[in-house]
Structure formats: C-alpha cells, structure tokens
Design a protein around this nucleic acid. Sequence first.
DNA 1: TGAACATATGAATAATTGTTCAAGTGAAGG
DNA 2: CCTTCACTTGAACAATTATTCATATGTTCA
Lengths: 112, 112
Amino acid sequence: MHDHNDILKKVKNELPDDELLCDLADLYKIFGDTTRIKIMYALFEEELCVCAIADLLGMTQSAISHQLKILKDADLVANRREGKTIYYHLSDDHVRSIIAQGFDHLTEEHED
Amino acid sequence: MHDHNDILKKVKNELPDDELLCDLADLYKIFGDTTRIKIMYALFEEELCVCAIADLLGMTQSAISHQLKILKDADLVANRREGKTIYYHLSDDHVRSIIAQGFDHLTEEHED
DNA sequence: TGAACATATGAATAATTGTTCAAGTGAAGG
DNA sequence: CCTTCACTTGAACAATTATTCATATGTTCA
C-alpha cells in the first residue's frame, strides 16, 4: 500500500462518531423503500387512516401497518385515534425537505 | 373497510409516478449504509484513493471498491486516475446537503 | 356481553444486499 | 516482457428485511 498517513490523520479527525454515522445510515435506510416513500408522500397533503393508505397503494393493511411502525419509531410520522380509526400524519417538516433534496439530485442534469 | 374514496382520489392525483418514487427510494438506499456514509463523509474534505479509504475505515480494498462502484453509478462520486492510483471525490454538493438534512432530523429535539 | 370493525403483532418465507475470497485489469518500472 | 502495485470484478455466503398469513388488541354499538 502506498503512503498516505498524513492525509488519513487529518480526515480521521473530521469523521463524526461511529454511532452518529450509524444513526444517519439508519435514518436513510427508512427512506430507502418504495412503500415507505409512498406512505410519506401520501401524508404530504393530509392525515390518512391505515386502510386508506393500504387502499391507495394497493397493499394489505398488515403490510402498511408494519411500515407505519417503522416510520413511527423513527419519529417520521405520528398518529391519533378517533374511535376505531387511527389517523397518521407526518411528524415534522424534515420528511418534506429530505425528500425534496432527493428530488433535486434526481432531476439534476448529469452530462457524460 | 370504511369509506374514504373522496380523499383517495385527491391524494392519488398528487402522487408522483411510480418510477420516480422508486428512483427516489433507490437513491436513499445508497445513503442507508454505514460504510457508504463514511466514505462520502471522508470525501467531504478532499479526494482520496481507494486504499486510503480502506485504511481509514479498517476494511478491505475490495469491500470499498464495491461500495465506490455503487456510489459512482448513482453519480454521487467521481474519480480520476493518476498513474496507478485512482482518486475519488464527491461529484456535487447534493451529497453534502442530503447528509446535512439527515443530521438536522437526528439532532432535533422531539418532545413527547 | 358479544359481534363487527380498524389496526397491530409475531412467525415464516422470499428477496435483497454487504463482505469476503479468488481471480482479473491496467499502469509503471526494471 | 515480466513483476509489482492499485484497483476492479464475479461468485458465494451470511445477514437483513419486506410481505404474507394467522392471530391478537382495542374500540364501538347493539
């Protein structure tokens, strides 16, 4: 291996804690699934109940419920109960801005 | 299932194409791995060759090379050759801003 | 209390994916 | 040329994960 100790020392200091980088990866992992992206997108406009989301995406209630749990555990969505129905909504605007940022990258031109 | 046809019609219209949502999920999938996050972070400061990154992260060249290919295919990093050595760097500022956005969410307080 | 409804949960399966190992490029230098 | 060095690539294995199916929770209303 060729020498690059000086650069490594410098870069090593700039790297955040392993734990933080891991948390960051875990957060993005949640955005890395089409079903969850669709759920979040659906909640852009207004709160929806579980079966409405299931209906919208053409998937089972169970599958949606599993994904909603993941989103809730990550504080990306929250819910409220109204009788038998549970309505989900985005918990803050980060979801919107994170998704918007992704769009920026996708729609940007890349010359080759 | 209870009725919510009116809401569904409205939300359905707002949802982007399936293909776009899929591409978006694929993009975030790339950020959803600790190794790749670390690689991108390491490249924040300056370009690095493959074995420097491997050394920094304490991983094999092969593992890093595989991940660099994924990052390159997604236009997140680019490289240049100098003799036997290949230097990688971030291809644009989107990487920085996407990661920064993630940090925002992680470091924000969530009252319960 | 009991039936019906909306949702949650657990276990199982199938598919995806990160790392390793072994072999393959391609450039530099004797 | 032939070797060495930096890196890439492909196949295989292990680990993770999304969905399904069956069952459980909790609320409403008769």
